[in-house]
Each structure stands twice: as C-alpha cells, then as structure tokens.
C-alpha cells in the first residue's frame, strides 16, 4: 500500500468537484482497501464519504424505496420493509460476504466494486484489466469466469450479488457530478463491460458520486446464489427474478459475465402472462442461449438453468 492523504469534506455536494483520477472516494472500504493493499490502486488521496452528509436513510418513495448511498448492506438485510417489498435485494444482500463486511459495505460501493478475478487481483500478474496485456484467464484457470460475452478482452465476472438483483428490479442510481449536475441512471446502464479506453466495469467519470439508489417495489422477486461453500464466497452463478408492477418478469444472472447479465432468451421464452410450469421449463432451457463457456466453466450452464427454474418457480 502506497501512502496517501486522507480528507473529510462535510458537505456531500462539495465532494465530486474534489475528485480526480487520483483523489478517490472512500465509503465502506471493504473492496477499496483490498485493492490498495494489493497495489492495484495507488491514489494520492482518499475522501472519506462517511465524514460527509451523504445519504444514509432508507425511505419509502412512490412505487418503491430510496436508499442513501451510504446505507450498509446490513441495514438492508435487517430492514423488514425491504425484506417484504424487494426480497430479491434483501436476499442478495444477505448472501453477499459476511456480517462484518455487510456492517461496513455500502450499497453504492457494492455496485462499484472491482472483479475478484484471481489474475486481476494477483500482484504478480499484469492482465489487461490491470493495465497490462492479455487475459491469462482465457487460457488458464477459468472455472470461476464468464460464460457469456466471452470474446471481449476480459472474462472476469462482476462480483456483486445486489447488482444482479437491482438490475432485475429495474433500480436506478442518482449520480452527482463535479459540475454540480445530477442525473439518474439505470443500474443496468451503470454497469458495462470494460473497454480499452475505460478499463472499469461502470460508466462513472472520476468526479461522479452515487448519492442514492432507487428501487421499485417487487414483492414477487428473489435472488438465488450458488457458491462452493455454504456462505462467504463470490457467486459461481446467481439468478435474480423479479415481477414488476406491470407484470413484466426480469431475469438477471450474476457470475456469468462482466456485468449482471440479462437472461433475454429466458425472458422471451416465457412469452406471455402467467408463469406456468411449462413456461418456466422453457425459460430455464433458454437461460443459457448464447452462452460460450470457457474450458473449465461449462458446469455453469446447468447451474444457470437450475437456478433460473427455481427462481421463476419461487416468484410464480
């Protein structure tokens, strides 16, 4: 970990203008500190958002909920209203990380965490995503890697469970920029595959700060996760299913692509109202349409079909 300065700015609205590519925001720190320790990030300064008046409230709003950016995963997990009204989010949060990490990690930070790819995180490897060349995972140990969209420069999967749930729920984030402008962005549009010019998994600029996450209600929603141990592992595959207020069913998988992956084929296969057993069978079978697994992760396909089937059955 290289040395850096530590700053507190009381007014959240004043934070974005201070941010640069080397002056970075610090919230829960549960991902950022691991990157600093691995020297993946070497900021000159950190601005502690917790020392500001950035949102910490969980508010009922028209048609859903508004979560301040600093709301911790623990508070979501233990919030009766969210558990009842957006179970997919509460379930995703509950299956993410551990109690200690959830006590610290914020919902906005969770969306912006970097991949856990074991090459990306390895100090001894300079992969494309870390600013170097090539993707050792493509020909190496890739049992945890992507099965969709695998012809891009990086096959790391997005590490967040809540992200998949939020995309399925149609959630949005409120973003404040360095010029004082505010914009609303769907989580689905916030998270995008990295490109040569922008080797991160989101579209935010250096001086953007997420101030809130808005989540539409979907009492019929769920998030299922498969890990190699009972708890405390990143998803091999996760599936979020949500029935929106207007009856639309959205299916989003984690652990299968650079970003939360919309299971468009499965959604299309549902074709029509009513989650009948036949429709669920069809959708589950179509969940892996377009998949292009790597040498070691073909097992994710049956896993994805099973979780899709079970998630749909749960919300039917």
């Amino acid at each position: 970990m290289t040395p850096f300065d530590y700053q507190r700015i009381p007014e959240a609205a004043a934070v974005p203008a201070q941010l640069t590519p080397t002056v970075r925001p610090l919230a829960g720190g549960t991902d950022l500190l691991t990157r600093l320790k691995a020297c993946l990030d070497r900021p000159d300064a950190l601005v502690d958002l917790k020392a500001s008046d950035l949102g910490r409230a969980i508010d009922r709003v028209d048609g859903g909920w508004r979560l301040g950016a600093l709301v911790t995963l623990s508070r979501i997990q233990h919030h009766p209203g969210l558990r009842a009204d957006v179970p997919a989010l509460a379930e995703a949060v509950s299956q993410a990380a551990t109690p200690q990490l959830r006590n610290r990690a914020t919902i906005a930070g969770n969306l912006l965490q970097r991949p856990r790819c074991w090459y990306f995180r390895n100090e001894r490897v300079q992969c494309w995503l870390a600013g170097g060349e090539g993707c050792p995972a493509r020909s190496g140990r890739n049992e945890h890697h992507a099965v969709f969209d695998t012809d891009g420069p990086c096959v790391a999967t997005h590490p967040s469970d809540p992200a998949a749930a939020l995309v399925a729920l149609g959630a949005t984030v409120t973003v404040l920029d360095g010029g004082g402008g505010e914009r609303e962005l769907a989580v689905a549009d916030l998270l995008v595959p990295p490109t040569d010019e922008r080797r991160v998994e989101h579209v935010l600029a250096a001086d953007d700060v997420i101030t809130a996450v808005t989540v539409p209600s979907a009492p019929r929603s769920t998030y299922l996760k498969a890990m190699d141990r009972a708890v405390w592992a990143f998803a091999l595959v996760g599936v979020a299913a949500a029935v929106s207020a207007d009856g639309e069913v959205r299916l989003v998988a984690s652990g299968v692509a650079n970003t939360p992956w919309r299971l468009a084929g499965a959604e299309a296969a549902l074709a029509g109202p009513g989650l009948t057993p036949e429709a669920i069978d069809r959708a589950a079978a179509a969940a892996t349409d377009g998949a292009a697994p790597l040498a070691e992760n073909g097992y994710k396909l049956p896993l994805l079909r099973t979780l899709t089937h079970r998630a749909l059955t749960a919300v039917a």
């Binding site: 074991w118 190496g140 141990r229 592992a233």
Partner: peptide
C-alpha cells in the same frame, strides 16, 4: 490449490479463494 500451468502460479493463494469450511459447512 489451483495452479496456472502456463504461469506456474497458484491462483487461489488466499483465504478468499482457497476455501476452508465455514461454520455453516
């Protein structure tokens, strides 16, 4: 412990990826 044959590096050289049981296992 998984080793990348080409690089000769163990890839899961931490308690994050080398999975020892938790209380619920």
């Amino acid at each position: 412990q998984l080793v990348d044959a080409e690089l000769g590096l163990p890839v899961n050289d931490s308690l994050e990826e080398y999975l020892v049981p938790t209380v619920l296992d």
